[in-house]
Design a binder for these strands. Sequence first.
RNA 1: GCCCCCAUCGUCUAGUGGCCUAGGACACCGCCCUUUCAAGGCGGCGGCGGGGAUUCGAAUUCCCCUGGGGGCACCA
Length: 498
Amino acid sequence: MNFNNNNQIRVRFAPSPTGHLHIGGARTALYNWLFARGHDGVFILRIEDTDLSRSTEQAINQIMNSLRWLGLDWDEGPETGGIYGPYRQMERLDLFRSAAERLLAEGKAYYCYCTHEELEEQRRQARSQGRPVVYQGCCRNLSAEEGRLLREEGRQPVLRMKTPASGLTVVRDVIKGDVKFENAQLGDYILMRSSGVPTYNFAVSVDDATMKISHVIRGDDHLSNTPRQLLLMEALGFQPPVYAHLPLILGADRTPLSKRHGAVSVEEFRSRGFVREALCNYLALLGWSFDSDTNLFSIAELTGKFSLERVGTTAAAFDEDKLTWMNGYYIRNMPAAELAGRIVNFLPTSRLAGLPGRKGKPGVADLVPLVQEKMKTLADFIRLTDFFFLPIKFEAQSLGKLEHDANSTAILRTVSGILNGLTDFSAGHIEEELRQAAAEMEIKLGKFLQPVRIAVSGKLVTPGMFETLAVLGRQESVSRIQTTLAMLEAAQTDNKSI
RNA sequence: GCCCCCAUCGUCUAGUGGCCUAGGACACCGCCCUUUCAAGGCGGCGGCGGGGAUUCGAAUUCCCCUGGGGGCACCA
């Protein structure tokens, strides 16, 4: 049986819809996608929703949204369709059932009537006797009559695989090499639940085969399931795909990634202002490398350079510092108009929502040139530019510094006068005038500008002062300086702190 | 308890017996640039988990230990 027609590369990402798209799942999806795109292959999205109690429609949508946001488009899958569909396992039940019947008819599987309690007891005993904690096959040789009687007791059977009692099953893994498993360790695992819904191992085997998957690229946690799937493939007469098991991603403290590590879902990173280019680039490098010194890769470069052979074997710790650095890199190197668009999309859920561009206020595009090289995340735009839109809030120490500097008042008066008289309120012209004023007062530019910065923004750190004033406009700039000046003078008259 | 995987700077990694007095990136620390902060430039700090074995020679091969991770579900 030629399972892989035309030797076409067909890979799949097969999440179970029980929550957001995890950073680990995102990397798995990315690697599959890169592999497909780099080999003229097909990338398939398959939803593994056989856990009825945990799967939700909402999770399916969240996962698809996250994949789309990352730019990982699928060629076959839910909503897209494809000739090997449907692409949700709960819509493929007939396929699993006929495969189950075949195994049963050929004596390769059998019904098991053990109850949860009985199984629990068996496991407890196995553990205490140091045996593998797998099903020992009590129901394996039940006669038809015995089965009928148990059924009459009201027991709903599950279908179990007849696993060979001896021998080895070898997983040939592109990343791990040949991994040997003793069949005796595998046990007679469950294929069909008593509800008639297949279990993971069964569904995945049938689907990978019937969807003609050529390469299974997935997390390490599935490695020890692979021999069970291999046995199934063999029993059903399918040729198995090539396997590649990726090492897991750990938290910064090298413990398994979980909510307590902060952001773990793609959605969270997105809402914190990370851009897809950085997330994809960072994730690509978490477990894969191209050479000894390249770190930055565009999506196109990744597509051309990614290979399974260069995927590492060590579990990688997620380092948000490096992601943040990379995010800043992509933000700095983005065309200003592109960045502005991203910020506009990002802002609606923030405290700046609806403000940019409103009556007399600067627009996002006006501010991007002032803050682009200072931003590490899209959220930084808010921190950096809020004073343009919101009432000034003097941050800690800012007023104190103003008071402490004996020249503050004089500088502010001078600057206010200069700005008020300017007809050309461009950044260049403002710079010219203020530099000259600073020179005349024999004050270094940095010291000269700091009171102005505090007066118009309330902050110790802002974008470049000349550009900031220009965007603020003459009226607003002068008015802010005057207001601050008045506070300062009042405080000095009263001889007390502001 | 049983099975499996993994092990180079704090982190991501390069390295497949001599090119390694172990290279790059993030972080950190200095200096330069500078209008604050970033960015950028230059420099620095910092690592082959331990023990055996093979070899003229081991980060690289083998064994043991230790440590981490995964699995052993009518979860995926």
